[in-house]
Write a protein that binds this DNA or RNA. Structure first.
Length: 416
DNA sequence: TCTGGGGTCCTAGGACCC
DNA sequence: TCTGGGGTCCTAGGACCC
């Protein structure tokens, strides 16, 4: 039996979703004019997270700085994102897709794969895909592309062909016609660096990559990646549609400052802020982390990173923060302005730490109590945020930010 | 024009053990 | 005294995805 895989991809997801919300409020449809969604439009460092088709036509793309887009079109419509709304749109979207097949893999907030092998035939696949696409548009108010193929790679490549609101087919025997003429950078997993490397070697199209000998390819990109690229360029992909939700393997939080920072107190406050976020998230998900990493970004975008292993896995803000502080002092010269700081945790476990050490930091009880209060306040702030959202008030207060404000005002001090 | 935030996986070298 | 090789863990760094 042939495999039939759908890849469904929301067109300019964040922009489409905000547009449906504005339309519901009786406002003009921003999809019809050059428009973009960005984080905080007033922040000079914010970048575009999605662009409308008219905006794309004049050269405005996702990940472009807002200031650059405004230079292209000073009358560009800029709207602020709304994560609460995104989440609701995403849930409705995934639920509707799931009604077509339970074998669903969510690939990101706005993309999923469906294994349709038992639900349609190669002959009526286009018809079924079109029905799904139209049903999303009618019921949810935004458009999707559906790619249909004999594996996940081909389905994903197909959904990328022409947008928006389209169904495309890419069976394995169509690979030479439909996929090989495309630039090699269009191939999934062939990003900027790999593309440059292949171009420099004279490989411009996916077809040329498919014909390249393994020896040369291995020398260019390493053995494992070479095998994957070679298989993919030939349209082959055996990977199944994974219905199990994978547990997170790492958590991280980072903040870019409005201006580059050099004052140790400012930087320490930011470090505390990201430590609070990361530690709160792992406690929420009942994890403890064995590895803590700290990273900084400088003015020129170069990065420095350091990681360390804790004596025992921890979910305590102060433990993570103090490890990050130590690594920062070992990494940063104290003079060069920093653009960003971040903290990550990995090597996660659900096991409770065994608190047998006679040498446990006597402050640990205080630290835990501090975290407990933090979690309580964050939960209250989250409830208040949702309530305000339902009442259509400003919904954008990040719960952890509320706690941070108390830190700033001196009502709550960061753990030493 | 001046570049966010959150993830995954792979590689390579050094330390250490057997 | 000097030698080999495999396995595992750790860290640093780089690539990709949305």
């Amino acid at each position: 039996m042939p495999r039939i895989i759908f890849h469904i991809d929301v067109n300019s997801a964040f922009l489409s979703w905000i547009a449906t919300k504005l339309v519901l409020e009786g406002k003009p449809d921003i999809r019809l004019v050059p428009s973009v969604v960005s984080g905080d439009p007033s922040d000079r460092r914010s970048i575009i997270s999605a662009a409308s088709i008219p905006a794309k036509k004049i050269g405005i793309k996702a990940a472009m700085p807002v200031s650059m887009a405004l230079r292209i079109d000073p009358s560009l419509v800029i709207v602020q994102g709304d994560w609460e709304w995104y989440k609701r749109c995403s849930e409705s979207f995934i639920a509707l897709c799931r009604s077509y097949s339970p074998v669903l893999q969510q690939f990101s907030i706005d993309e999923c794969f469906l294994d349709m092998s038992l639900r349609c035939t190669p002959e009526n696949a286009v018809e079924v895909a079109t029905r799904l696409k139209d049903e999303v548009k009618q019921q949810l108010g935004f458009t999707v592309n559906v790619g249909v193929g004999s594996n996940k790679l081909l389905a994903k490549m197909a959904s990328d062909f022409e947008k928006p609101d389209k169904v495309h087919i890419l069976w394995e025997n169509e690979v030479p016609d439909k996929m090989w003429p495309l630039p090699v950078g269009d191939l999934l997993w062939c990003g900027k660096k790999t593309q440059e490397r292949l171009n420099a070697y004279g490989i411009k199209t996916i077809g040329q990559l498919a014909a390249l000998g393994m020896g040369s390819l291995t020398r260019l990109v390493g053995q494992k990646f070479a095998q994957q690229l070679h298989e993919n360029a030939n349209g082959r992909d055996e990977s199944p549609v994974e219905t199990e939700i994978q547990e997170a393997k790492s958590y991280s939080a980072e903040r870019t400052f409005p201006q580059d920072l050099v004052k140790p107190a400012d930087i320490d406050r930011a470090l505390f802020y990201v430590a609070s976020i990361v530690a709160h998230r792992i406690r929420r998900d009942d994890f403890r982390a064995s590895t803590v990493s700290m990273f900084v970004k400088y003015k020129d975008f170069s990065m420095a990173q350091k990681q360390c292993t804790l004596d025992q896995p921890s979910d305590v803000t102060a433990v993570i923060l103090n490890a990050a502080r130590r690594m920062l002092s070992e990494t940063w010269d104290g003079v060069t302005p920093l653009r960003q700081v971040g903290i990550g945790v990995s090597k996660l476990t659900h096991e409770s730490a065994i608190q047998m050490s006679l040498f446990e930091d006597p402050k640990m009880e205080y630290y835990r109590e501090w975290d407990r209060q933090y979690d309580e306040q964050a939960a209250r702030a989250e409830d208040a945020r949702l309530l305000a959202y339902e009442r259509k008030k400003q919904p954008n207060q990040d719960p952890v930010y509320v706690v941070l404000r108390e830190v700033k005002s001196g009502k709550k001090s960061p753990p030493e």
